[in-house]
Design a protein around this nucleic acid. Sequence first.
DNA 1: ACTAGATTGAACCCGTCAGTTCAACTCTGC
DNA 2: GCAGAGTTGAACTGACGGGTTCAATCTAGT
Lengths: 219, 219
Amino acid sequence: MRVPAARTAARGRIDKRQAILEAAFTVFARRGYAQACVQDIADEAGVAKPTVYNHLGDKENLFRHAMEAAADAVMRENLAVVERLRTTGDDLRAALEDVAYRMLKVCCGERSRALRSLTYSQVATFPELIETVQGRTSIGLGEAVADRLARLSLSGRLRQCDPGQAAEQFLALLTGPMEARSRLGTREVSAAETRAVANAAVDTFLRAYAAEAADPGLP
Amino acid sequence: MRVPAARTAARGRIDKRQAILEAAFTVFARRGYAQACVQDIADEAGVAKPTVYNHLGDKENLFRHAMEAAADAVMRENLAVVERLRTTGDDLRAALEDVAYRMLKVCCGERSRALRSLTYSQVATFPELIETVQGRTSIGLGEAVADRLARLSLSGRLRQCDPGQAAEQFLALLTGPMEARSRLGTREVSAAETRAVANAAVDTFLRAYAAEAADPGLP
DNA sequence: ACTAGATTGAACCCGTCAGTTCAACTCTGC
DNA sequence: GCAGAGTTGAACTGACGGGTTCAATCTAGT
């Protein structure tokens, strides 16, 4: 006899589908696609196995939709952080450091890591994952950052440059070192170390992209 | 009846074990751990299934050893490239661009990508993979690059800096954008674009780390 | 209360695959 | 040729899990 995970407020058919999608992502993240079995997902969602099949058909479909939903959630978080670059105060460095740190917190969060890991591992089996996931995360995030950097460049606070490339490198300077330090997410990275990574990335970024000399442009 | 892959020079027991390890990595890379079955690996190696079990015990062991061997191979390739930084000519930028480009070619190669993908996807099931693989690739590579950068810094061609951090960021500037452009390796990136990524990385790196002003130090 | 549709648990079918067994075969060294 | 170790194919076991079926149960809306 299986023991349901959260049977409390489950009986009403309110949003079974949503619960199933979240549970599915949780279990896939925990076990990997092939090792995750539908019964586990049903249990995690506090739902019977046939109900899962009723709502989402087979395992592949379930996986696709779960990944899609998770990607959307991660993207929302990331965009909220990038929005903070819209209102930069006087101190550009401080603003970038703030955004960098928050972005690292998101990108190393549970969902974000699991999403990357699952995408990486199942890209051979589900080729459309790249579009679905990358399109909703990396690519969109890159564009959002590029937009902000373009404005900063135009207002003379960064030097003339290709904003797309600048954004690409900014993100690389952030996530690359972080992945290495966290050992692909298997190791806790202290807040202090995270902040150090963010600051180092911003420092290098500004050395390479800050406007030359004392900016003579604006009044 | 199964069709063996390369039965030509297989009969002698010369290096069955080696053949099995290589075949295993090939099949794991192609199908992923869970989806790869031992029979496929045996076929790929041109060997019978019991022989696989004779040499390497169970599937988990097989996987561990195959990953270990592949990591060693990738590491050898990478170190060979980094060694080129020992003899920098007059043109530091050109030397870095050369190394950067070669490194990208290695890191986006078949083995290297498969290694990353498999590590990522199985890290939950085989926690020691991080040590085995990262220890033999990323970490060692980072240290090797840091060694070279330290020398360059000492000889006044780069500014004073923490070589470990510089290496970390140099590698991030290289691999980050490349992973994004290649869509996790599912898309061919032209040699020209690869070179552009390498040059952009070196450009940003030098802006941030080159010795200040026209170096007055050396004769 | 009544009905229709959703939900449930349990059992079931069926394919896949890890791992084993075994008798036959092949090669090597002597 | 012979002995013995290694190899082979083929068949087998047992576990696991995807997907389905079904009768019993629950819930909502009327």
